[in-house]
Write a protein that binds this DNA or RNA. Structure first.
Lengths: 195, 195
DNA sequence: GTCTATATGTAGATAGAC
DNA sequence: GTCTATCTACATATAGAC
């Protein structure tokens, strides 16, 4: 799908990122060629290098963008006071955010090993920041006596794994809608941490 | 690391599978070349094709072997009568089995999309068999009134996601040993399904 | 900013000697 | 059963014209 020559800087950049996100999610970073990405966008392969220095930087930028979006979205949310209400807000936020961008979630878990070491560290730092948000809620609830958990770090990781797992089976138009899913997961989390 | 010529059929096959498992887990299927696998084993690349018709078949065989091992191990376990005891047995089994072979677990989740469609279906069928084992326990507990869950399929998937998540952070010699981990996860699962 | 052409390397898989 | 040599295809990335 080659395109006639011309300058399209404002739209080509985002389209490259979208195409890369889509293809990386479907086939995996290593299995996707720059030519495939170019083909999906409708440009020739050389044009991609006006927008990214190399393939690795393109992957990193997608993963970093996703983590920054996640943290920003959570921080800009008006969170309630009580630990229970804050935990419920976190559960519902996490599910809604993740169901909204399954491809970004997918590559953010799957393609970590294709990052070079420095890029990997940066993503891990962002991930830890997000985990800390949940752990803080849990610790606070324990301190106030409304939650009971033997190990706040392990519970944090277990809850996030459980919630993120929703993206492996959820399909729009399926038996359960997003609100059903949020409610059911919140039920489970609530019981898990209950005092 | 080339090796002098000679016949080693009894040992080369397993060593190829080990090397492939290790390299696929570390770098990803698509990022690993047949030459790398041969190098790790200490043979030349042509020799690999005495043991697998192609790279795809090698991946499938690793994933299928893992799922069959998992199902066999669970089925050969003497499971108790009561739903609570059976659920506890499942949780402890799942964690012990998964902590024992982190690389096979890892590629079994990460490399599904690199299977061709028919191979993918076969692995999915085995995975569903395993999920059914847990769902049967949960349904039984609900019928007997000892568990309360709004949706046995969703709870099945949530519990498996939570338990399998242990492989993403567990490291031998870390703060928590395998028995600690099993106990803590069992605590969480028990509360989640409690009536 | 995009194109075409290309440099350079490496991939999966096979053939035939030993 | 393994080796060496090779076929064919495709990879990332760059140079220079438009």
């Amino acid at each position: 799908m080659a395109r006639t020559q011309g300058s399209h800087s404002e739209i080509t950049g985002p389209r490259i990122r979208e195409a890369a996100l889509h293809l990386f999610a479907k086939h995996g970073f290593a299995a996707v060629s720059m030519r495939q990405i170019a083909g999906e966008v409708g440009v020739q392969v050389g044009a991609l290098y006006n927008y990214t220095p190399d393939k690795q930087a393109l992957l990193f930028s997608l993963l970093e963008g996703h983590m920054i979006d996640l943290l920003e979205a959570w921080r800009s949310l008006d969170t309630p006071q009580s630990p229970e209400a804050r935990l419920e807000a976190f559960v519902r936020f996490h599910i809604a955010f993740h169901l909204d961008r399954p491809e970004a979630v997918f590559i953010s878990y799957m393609e970590l090993r294709n990052l070079d070491p420095e890029n990997f560290s940066r993503i891990e730092r962002l991930r830890r920041d997000y985990e800390d948000a949940l752990e803080t809620i849990l610790r606070d609830g324990v301190a106030k006596g409304v939650f009971a958990l033997p190990d706040s770090k392990l519970t944090t990781l277990a809850v996030i794994a459980m919630l993120t797992g929703v993206t492996t089976w959820y399909r729009p138009g399926g038996r359960l809608g997003p609100d059903d899913v949020s409610r059911l997961y919140w039920d489970m989390v609530r019981k898990t941490v209950a005092a």
